[in-house]
Design a binder for these strands. Structure first.
Lengths: 193, 193
DNA sequence: GCGATAACCATACGGCGGTACGGCAACCCG
DNA sequence: CGGGTTGCCGTACCGCCGTATGGTTATCGC
């Protein structure tokens, strides 16, 4: 159901996600949609929450995989942050949906909460990773993890927009991201690698 | 006229910028609006172009002022980039409008062109400033100006979103920006200061 | 088994959006 | 002077959207 919303927005923008269009796309009737969601706002909010939850879960999975493979924090983090870049058609679509909801979040307080919460979780995880780096020697002890996390998350946010607008600059974006990550986590882990 | 569109979007979102609402806000009739703009798309596109032109002009003005005052490139650039952050109510409003149009740019090719062009000009100016820094000793000769410009513009983009979402983190955003700028332009100008 | 509750549907309704159209005043140019 | 172009207006039209509603089928507790 939420997937139908995502598909519609990804393909034709947020305005295309009308009740009837969603119902048609999902193969249900309009009445059914109304049965599960009291209003369109609820539907959209649910779809937004679902989107961010999926994204966060994917990041968590990549983290888990990386840890299981014994990779460095820097490598894992680069992996996770690149996941947020619209580098392939699927992620471009997701980016469209995400941005549409973020725009909506400027007018709808409930959506804004989701946006704040998601960004907070992401920033928190990045900060945690950097903090962990101090224990295993990847991060300089003097580094302010919180500030570095603010920088990195803001950077990927901006790079995502850039890559979407100008896909030709994807390589440059990746280079910038890797570079900054290397600056924040310059050391080698004393456990792995 | 475009100002009316901006006010409406800033206050109630892009959907509030209907033909009749714009006419009312501007003190004109619906017919007049139609007389000057063949369609709503045209009106919105004009308003978008106007917005970006204003913004670029303001940045240019700040640059000119800074140069006239003999300030360092780093100081001027910090000034310009902070101009892009939604630090006060006026700029918050502008940010809302800007983001609304950027979201629209994902569906409307003509708007996308404006977005790409604006971002390009901005990035170009930043790159130029960094390049200039090499001649006056502020920038390390090995610095890749283009790449650094990509980083800085993407960073302010992301920071702008962060500051809008969580105004409490404005100080952190400013610190990050100043820090990165200091890293790219570490030296002292051999002419001024 | 059976009433009630939930799942599900088709359709009707009120509202509003963008655009088209006909008309009125003013001004220009021959 | 006078017809036509331009600036400008009010309104009507059509379509679509979100929602409400009444009804039909299935599910399930007792």
């Amino acid at each position: 159901m939420a997937a139908a919303v995502h598909r519609l927005i990804a393909h034709d923008g947020l305005d295309a996600a009308t009740m009837s269009a969603v119902a048609r796309e999902a193969g249900f009737s309009v009445g059914l949609v109304q049965h599960y969601f009291a209003s369109k706002d609820e539907l959209l909010l649910f779809a937004y929450e679902r989107l961010t939850a999926d994204l966060l879960a994917r990041v968590a999975a990549r983290t888990a995989d990386g840890e299981a493979a014994g990779r460095s924090i820097r490598a894992i983090m680069l992996d996770c942050l690149c996941e947020l870049l619209p580098l392939d058609p699927a992620r471009r679509g997701e980016h469209r949906v995400s941005r549409a909801f973020q725009a909506r979040a400027m007018d709808v307080p409930t959506a804004a909460e989701v946006a704040v919460a998601t960004a907070g979780v992401l920033r928190g995880r990045v900060a945690q990773g950097i903090e962990n780096g101090k224990e295993c020697g990847e991060t300089e002890a003097a580094t302010d993890a919180e500030l570095a996390a603010v920088e990195l998350t803001a950077l990927v946010d901006g790079l995502a927009d850039l890559v979407y607008r100008e896909p030709a600059r994807a390589a440059a974006a990746g280079a910038v991201l890797a570079d900054r990550l290397a600056a924040v986590l310059p050391g080698r882990c004393r456990h792995y690698d």
